[in-house]
Deep mutational scan, measured.
Amino acid sequence: MEVRTIKVFTTVDNINLHTQVVDMSMTYGQQFGPTYLDGADVTKIKPHNSHEGKTFYVLPNDDTLRVEAFEYYHTTDPSFLGRYMSALNHTKKWKYPQVNGLTSIKWADNNCYLATALLTLQQIELKFNPPALQDAYYRARAGEAANFCALILAYCNKTVGELGDVRETMSYLFQHANLDSCKRVLNVVCKTCGQQQTTLKGVEAVMYMGTLSYEQFKKGVQIPCTCGKQATKYLVQQESPFVMMSAPPAQYELKHGTFTCASEYTGNYQCGHYKHITSKETLYCIDGALLTKSSEYKGPITDVFYKENSYTTTIK
């Protein structure tokens, strides 16, 4: 009895394709271990004539594949690729409408935090270190965002349907971005203890939790000093293409032309909904596939993004 075979390709990165001759009487799992086709788990399936010449994702289970996976995804987590594939199996079914010149995501599976993050990423200057993220990001900007969303979920250790947080998501993504040249110098002034300067680099240099107003941050924000008295913390120097200011959701007025974009969060910790506000020729609110415009805006804002380049204080 002759062994019926077909020729397929296996890959971990969709760049390096490895030619395989597979036995049609055995499952993919018996031949390769966990195997995925377009995100779908085909591990328990036997090869079919229609699979001839198709590319299958496999887990990096030998040295060659491990090197290829690390170079593309910059992670050695053995569960990463499987999590990416199972997320992709959902995100490829989502709709990605162009809204006001940006790629958004039609609401499904509690994905409003991903839509808000995706919209924000198209408006701030950011370059990702893992080629996987950078490639998928370019495709997302062009309207094909399924891979990018699935990668975000995998890097953030999230599953489809789980509630997510924009600030946490951005923080994970910033860790995989090139923020080497970003720098922030802060000064804390206390009447009792004097003053202390701190220099922050990388992710810490672009994120701040405690106030939404970048102007206020430049002037000074009140913080408790270690001595128990009130101290003032203010920005001395900022070198970065953008800054992200966050605070627990509270009524906040966004003035046209003073910011790049913002995240609105309605609801409580267990259950809520994100919308995205962007400042173009007027203010726009993007909620999944829905767009509304207004000249002014007041609502429960939790993150505001500002364009920056270089700032030095005039406070002496």
Rank of each mutant, 00 (worst) to 15 (best):
V12I: 00
E68K: 08
Q222D: 00
D63A: 13
N14G: 15
Y269H: 15
G39D: 08
F80G: 04
Q237L: 11
G272C: 00
T159Q: 15
P248H: 13
V12D: 03
V67K: 10
T211S: 06
S310M: 14
S295R: 13
L59F: 10
D287L: 03
G228Q: 05
Q122K: 03
E215C: 07
Q216E: 14
Y96L: 07
Y84C: 13
M245Q: 00
L17W: 15
L254G: 01
H18Q: 09
C261L: 01
E125W: 05
T10I: 15
N129F: 02
L65A: 10
G272P: 06
L186D: 01
I223K: 00
A289V: 10
T27Q: 13
T19D: 12
K46G: 08
K44M: 10
T43N: 06
R4A: 13
L114I: 14
F80E: 00
T91W: 03
K92N: 10
Q270L: 15
L254T: 06
G299D: 12
T314G: 15
L126M: 05
K218V: 04
T19S: 12
D135N: 10
I45T: 14
I286F: 04
N157W: 00
Y214A: 00
T232P: 03
E52K: 13
S240Y: 04
E71M: 10
L121I: 13
R66I: 11
T55V: 11
R83N: 13
V185A: 01
D62N: 14
D13E: 15
R141V: 11
T258D: 05
L283H: 04
K316E: 15
Y172T: 10
N110G: 09
K201E: 06
V243C: 00
T313N: 14
V206W: 04
A87E: 10
I286W: 11
V58H: 09
V243G: 00
K255F: 05
A205N: 01
P131M: 01
P130C: 11
A142I: 02
E204Q: 14
A142N: 14
E144P: 03
H51A: 06
K95F: 06
V22E: 01
P249N: 01
V22Q: 02
Y28I: 05
V3F: 13
V67T: 13
R83Y: 10
K127D: 10
Q30V: 12
Q30I: 12
L102T: 15
K127V: 11
K95S: 15
Y252S: 07
C227T: 02
D165F: 09
V3E: 14
C271V: 09
K92F: 05
H18S: 04
Y269R: 15
Q238E: 06
H51L: 03
K275Y: 00
T292P: 01
P34N: 08
K275E: 07
K316T: 11
H48W: 11
T192K: 12
A146W: 07
L291T: 15
Y311L: 05
Q122S: 01
Q237H: 15
T192M: 08
Q270K: 10
T35G: 12
K218H: 03
C156L: 04
T198Q: 11
I315A: 15
K218Q: 02
V21S: 12
Q238I: 01
A117R: 05
S171R: 15
P78C: 07
M207I: 05
V8C: 13
T64N: 10
V236A: 09
K106H: 11
S213A: 01
L17Y: 01
A69E: 00
N110L: 00
H48K: 14
T260S: 02
Q251C: 10
M245P: 06
E281N: 01
T226V: 13
K191Y: 13
Y172M: 12
A231W: 01
D303P: 01
N187W: 06
R167N: 06
M24R: 13
T282A: 13
H273R: 04
Y208T: 09
T116N: 13
A136F: 07
D135M: 12
Y269L: 15
E2T: 09
D38Y: 08
V206A: 03
R66D: 07
M244N: 01
T282W: 07
V236F: 07
D303Y: 01
T211L: 11
Y137N: 05
K183L: 11
Y234G: 03
N129M: 09
K54M: 09
L114G: 08
S295G: 10
R141D: 05
L151K: 01
Y269N: 15
Q134C: 04
D23Q: 10
G29W: 06
K7M: 14
S181Y: 12
S25I: 15
I277A: 00
S295Y: 08
T282Q: 10
N61L: 12
K218R: 04
W107Y: 04
R4E: 12
F56E: 07
F32P: 01
A205S: 05
T313E: 06
K219R: 13
V189Q: 08
Y57T: 09
K229P: 06
I277E: 06
P78G: 07
A247V: 02
A142S: 12
G143M: 03
Y36F: 11
Y311M: 04
I45A: 12
R184S: 15
Y96F: 14
G39C: 14
Q222N: 10
D77L: 03
N16E: 06
T226M: 12
A117H: 03
R167T: 06
E52N: 10
C227F: 01
T211C: 12
V166C: 13
Y252C: 06
M24G: 12
T43F: 06
E125N: 08
Q238D: 04
F32D: 06
Y57I: 11
R66G: 14
C190L: 00
M207P: 06
V3S: 12
C225K: 01
P241N: 07
V160T: 06
A289R: 02
S246V: 00
T10S: 08
Q122W: 01
W107P: 03
Y113N: 02
N14R: 14
Y284C: 14
N16M: 15
Q195D: 11
P34T: 13
V42E: 06
K54E: 11
A142M: 12
D303A: 08
A205M: 00
Y311H: 09
S25H: 15
Y297I: 06
K233S: 12
V185R: 04
G82N: 13
G228H: 00
Q216A: 12
C149M: 13
L114T: 04
P224V: 14
M85E: 02
M245W: 03
T35A: 01
H276K: 00
Y57H: 11
S294E: 11
V206I: 08
P60R: 02
I315K: 15
K298F: 12
P241D: 05
G161Y: 05
C285L: 11
R139S: 14
T64P: 10
Q251F: 10
E239W: 02
H90S: 11
L291P: 04
Q197K: 04
V185K: 03
E264I: 11
N49G: 06
K92G: 08
G82M: 15
Y214E: 00
A69H: 15
A142W: 00
K255E: 00
E281P: 00
G288D: 04
G39Q: 07
A69P: 03
T120R: 03
D77C: 13
D303C: 09
L283R: 04
A150C: 07
H51D: 12
Q196K: 14
Q195I: 13
T278K: 09
H74A: 05
Y234L: 05
A108P: 09
F32N: 08
R141K: 15
Q251T: 14
K92H: 03
L283N: 07
V67N: 13
L163E: 10
T282E: 12
Q122T: 05
S294K: 07
